[in-house]
Design a binder for these strands. Sequence first.
RNA 1: GUCCCCGUAGCUCAGCUGGAUAGAGCAUCGGUUUUCUAAACCGACGGUCGCGUGUUCGAGUCACGCCGGGGACGCCA
Length: 583
Amino acid sequence: MELPFNVANHLDKTLRAAASTLGLAERGFEPEIRVADPANGDFQANGALAFAKREKQNPRALGQQIVDQLGSLKAGFDITLAGPGFINFRIKPEALLTWLEVYDSEEHLQTGASSARAGQTWVVDYSSPNTAKQMHVGHLRSAVIGEAICRLLAFSGAKVIRDNHIGDWGTQFGKLIWAYKRHLDQAALGREPLVEFERLYKLGNQAAESDPAVLAEAQQELVRLQGGDADNLAIWKRINDVSLAAFQEIYDQFGIRFDYTLGESFYNDKVGRVYRELTDCGLAQESQGALVVFHPEHPRFKSQPFIIRKRDGAANYASSDLATILYRVEHFQVDGAAYVIDFRQSDHMDQLFLTAGKWFERTGRKLPQLEHVDFGTVLGEDNKPLKTRSGENIRLKDLLDEARERAYQLVSAKSPEFPEAERRAIAAVVGVASVQYADLSQNRSSDYVFSWDKMISLEGNTAAYLLYAVARIRSIFRRAGLDAAVPPVVGATAPATPQEIALARKLAKFPDAVQLATNTLRPHFLGLYLYELAGDYSTFYAADKVIVDDPAVRARRLLLCHRTLIILETGLHLLGLRTLERM
RNA sequence: GUCCCCGUAGCUCAGCUGGAUAGAGCAUCGGUUUUCUAAACCGACGGUCGCGUGUUCGAGUCACGCCGGGGACGCCA
């Protein structure tokens, strides 16, 4: 009757065994376990339908045969055959109780989840801004989604390598160094270095446009940099160091810390090998002076080249991305790589993956699982890419400042009795979490409309709603003089009221939500689950008073409160959000 | 021109890879607090799933064709 961590996987395994006994497994029976509509059960197996169709059998008769083999499940589930052949599983309240008793902390939830990807190594390539420029809204989604994916993969047992593939090498450095040497404002550099770099770049760019002599000088600076000139290298390094320090101020707010920052410059000396290998294995060819790869079998890439070396002999991002894959395989032995990059680069990613696949095949290497984790654009209320009134990119720093300020106004209005410092601290969590969650709560593939009112008005599927549920649970413990870390749940009985049962059933589906979000690399599945869980909790909270005299009832409701708390917090932490004691 | 993505309630979005009567939030209307945070809860209203063919026991989901929106297409990343 004890349930394993992931109930759906347990059902899947048991049904496969049953199918094997019946001789169906060899003919390709798949259980197809899905989360069910609560009215029908907790999980359903749809496999009998597809199988019966293929084998021209009666699906209900087949379903009954399978159900007859499921005796071992009867202690924990009510099993029914329904409709044209669905097998429905409803977890019994007593079984829910045992599950809730076992998974009593973030650590134990992690232990339960960690078998899924134990032994795997994944690199997640995300954020990846250009140095010497400020991060803006365009950099928001990669950072937020990427971090959530890192945490999901790590939670399911993978070793995760966070790699910031920064744009730290390019032609812009000629003009920038030219201006840096002549027009650097030290005071401005101390205040806001990236603003100063942007000013210098614009200045150098304008000067080069209006004066051919300056252009020549800037090109010379670039040549010197690429030739290893000590002065220029020092300036370049300074620019990058200062840029990364500024980026980290943003990352800190999102809880991001990279393991590696291997940008384009790192692969500078590694592209030669790519040219050689791709040429030697017959993939690359000369075309219009450039080195390119075509894919004859592809409707588009048979004529649209993948340019891996420019006509002038220089590398571009195709070459460095190919070198990056090789490095990650040889140096980190990765099993998978997730690229959290704008959907507009899907052509590039498709060409990259296709090329890498053939390259690795021809050189006898094993290709890791390569995933383009694409995402849409952040739009303004006018449905066009989000900009300031004057048409500039919105700086991420300003965006987060505004988020905290708006949250502060709200906290101050709702909880004026809290001390100023605490209201600031709460606002920092709520503000940043609102921005993160607005992004994570919807399918990353589509564009989304950025709306302060929607994300911070705190109604519906928002960070604040979830944080509020957490705060209310913590409040119960606080008011009752109990420590939420050691909840008094001994003697808890199985969930009994409709609201208790609905909540408990939802709690036991956390593993399924995590698995779905991780396997599809789509964090919104977890967000949606947490929102529904918070909703079930709110319903329970309104219907069933927790601190009551009956010790058994009180213990079981405290158990439900506590498990809701740890699952909400674990889930929010997996998405990269911080949580609060009160708000 | 070629290729990719999107089109679901007035608005913003889910819909777990073909399953049961298409779901939430906002907005609108109505109700709930002597009780653990009302930033909450309960209820009502609201749908030719862009349009049309087709595939099959079953299509918002798959195929093809239109219509509408966005994007990418040779040396920026």
